[in-house]
Computed example of a mutant assay.
Amino acid sequence: FIRYLLPLFAVIALLANVIGGLRHRQWPRMVLGMIGPVLVLAAALLMSTMGMPTALLLYPGLVLMVAVSIWDLVSPPGKSHGGANRDPTCC
């Protein structure tokens, strides 16, 4: 699971955050969303190549991925707080 599926899900999450960040132009959300998958991918790479215990990278990456996902559920990136969309071409 950790060797194959976790990196696959991290790549999917990384691509989704990049696409969503570029689409909605919310750079802080995109950067925070990218850090978690990058940490998970680094942990998986170190684990598979060197066999190192990588809990210091893996667990914070997973926590950050879950936290950003919850943030997206609570406050979707397409909504603006002013009542109207700033970008008429968006969503």
Rank of each mutant, 00 (worst) to 15 (best):
L15I: 13
A42V: 06
V38F: 15
D72R: 00
L57E: 00
Y59I: 14
I2T: 11
A13V: 02
S80L: 11
A16W: 04
V74H: 00
L41G: 10
I12T: 07
T54Y: 04
I12V: 12
L39H: 12
S48M: 03
V74S: 00
P7N: 01
I19G: 05
G20R: 14
P77G: 00
L58V: 06
M50S: 06
I19Y: 07
I12D: 07
W27Q: 14
F1A: 09
L5T: 03
S48K: 02
S75A: 07
G36S: 14
A84H: 10
G20D: 09
K79Q: 14
S69Y: 00
A16T: 10
P53S: 02
A84R: 13
A43I: 01
T54C: 12
L32G: 13
R25A: 15
L14K: 06
W71H: 10
P60D: 02
L22Q: 11
R86T: 08
I12K: 11
I19K: 05
V74C: 04
P7E: 00
Y59C: 10
G78T: 14
L56K: 10
V38N: 12
V11L: 03
G82A: 15
I19D: 09
P60M: 02
V38D: 15
M30F: 12
H81V: 13
V63M: 09
L73A: 05
V74W: 01
F1R: 04
L57N: 02
P28L: 11
V40Q: 07
R3G: 05
R3P: 03
Y59A: 14
M50Q: 03
W71K: 01
D72F: 00
G36I: 13
I35F: 15
V68Y: 06
S48F: 01
S48G: 09
S69M: 07
I2G: 13
P7A: 01
L5C: 01
A55K: 13
Q26D: 12
V68C: 04
V63W: 13
Y59P: 09
G20I: 09
G61L: 08
R23Y: 12
V18D: 05
L64K: 06
R25E: 15
K79H: 11
G61S: 07
L57W: 03
I70F: 01
G61A: 09
I70V: 06
L39C: 15
F1K: 08
Y59G: 08
A67S: 08
L64R: 06
L62S: 05
P37K: 05
G82P: 11
L15C: 05
A44H: 08
Y59M: 14
P76I: 01
Y59H: 12
G61I: 08
P53Q: 06
A42K: 03
V66K: 03
I70C: 00
A16M: 10
C90G: 05
P53A: 04
R3W: 02
R29T: 13
H24C: 08
Y59L: 14
W27F: 15
